[in-house]
Design a protein around this nucleic acid. Sequence first.
DNA 1: GGTATGAATATGTCTATACATATTGAACAA
DNA 2: TTGTTCAATATGTATAGACATATTCATACC
Lengths: 214, 214
Amino acid sequence: MSTGWQEVQAEVLRRIQNREWPPGGLIPGEVALAREFGCARATVNRALQALADDGWLERRRRAGTRVALSPLRRAQMSVAVLRKEVEALGKTYGHRLLMRKVAGSLLSLQTLHQADGAPYGIEDREIDLTHLPAAGSADFTILSANEWLVQNAPFDHGNMSYMSEGATAFDARHLECEEATPLLVLYRETFSEAGRITRVRLAHAPGHVVRLQI
Amino acid sequence: MSTGWQEVQAEVLRRIQNREWPPGGLIPGEVALAREFGCARATVNRALQALADDGWLERRRRAGTRVALSPLRRAQMSVAVLRKEVEALGKTYGHRLLMRKVAGSLLSLQTLHQADGAPYGIEDREIDLTHLPAAGSADFTILSANEWLVQNAPFDHGNMSYMSEGATAFDARHLECEEATPLLVLYRETFSEAGRITRVRLAHAPGHVVRLQI
DNA sequence: GGTATGAATATGTCTATACATATTGAACAA
DNA sequence: TTGTTCAATATGTATAGACATATTCATACC
């Protein structure tokens, strides 16, 4: 029997998906599985660990390994730079800095993102200069704030929200659509250890689709 | 020096985030790091592997390990059952099956999901009975199709799309809003090995927010 | 110059062993 | 009954050693 941890993983996953090991059920211990597959316990451990990371199994010392009760799947999307998102569509990216304003330690920016010259999204951003003083002297007319931040402001964590909103007068003017047109709007905050780095509202052009993989 | 792979991971991550090891740069080999940290190569391997899984590092045999050039972060959301989503808001879940129709091997369903009696989302679903004959005889008035499928139709993969759409007459009637109100609409397909299991369009009630963690 | 060949090397993975640690459940005490 | 203690046990993790595999680089060859 060939003994790779990936093969062990595949076989265990198959048993889970085929209900041979039902949700909530206890599966054999690592030692037993190692004997069955004819490999070392470490190999089984590697496989089960990977499955636990992916949410298929729940493992606790002494208590053993169970098939996850609610196999709540995670959907993933990559948080790409807008330029790359546009280029991935085979279009030419462009952007225009519409507004730049400093109020205290808060830098406000408005940027229009374009794909082949057409409006792609309108961005309204605030950057906290106390946590990121370099942003005060950066030239966002060349590199967009979106891309500059990805390269210069590594963040710990953040959150994103998608909402459906009718286009405001501001949105409509820059996205070249009617007011109240349904738009997909993204709100995002990112934090470093010190605190919030930036907050952004991005209204996408009409018809924009966000895709996730499950 | 205490030697846990998590500590090695933490220290390496610190160096990446502090630009001590710049993006695109080659980092020391596993043997060198093991010597520095005073642990076995396998321990360093475990740590670097984890960081590579998270997208911080790119590793290739013989070529060595590099700090990822574009630390393209992934945003995650859990694909929960609607009932749990509603209950997580502290509200009482309810649903009504509005329509059930079989055309050939295609089962069509329309379901209204409710939170505290108010409309939460209106679902339009197709299920392929050739891949899932059991769905033909299930009673979706008790357990919603959404939940029944999660429990009975393990899937390999799938995709989701979010769009912003104006409420159709159908949406508006059931979600109790004006026509053309901006709605967040979810399209989802899930596949098993055999083929597509189900396709669904879910129009959320006005004001719905989708949150993701980065 | 361009191409084939092979040695060197960094990561990938498996093994056997050992000890750590959390948790369970039984035995026992208050 | 309730609480405490303790041994048993499944997973967590570290280690040294070995071999596999991909890739690079230098070298030899045409």
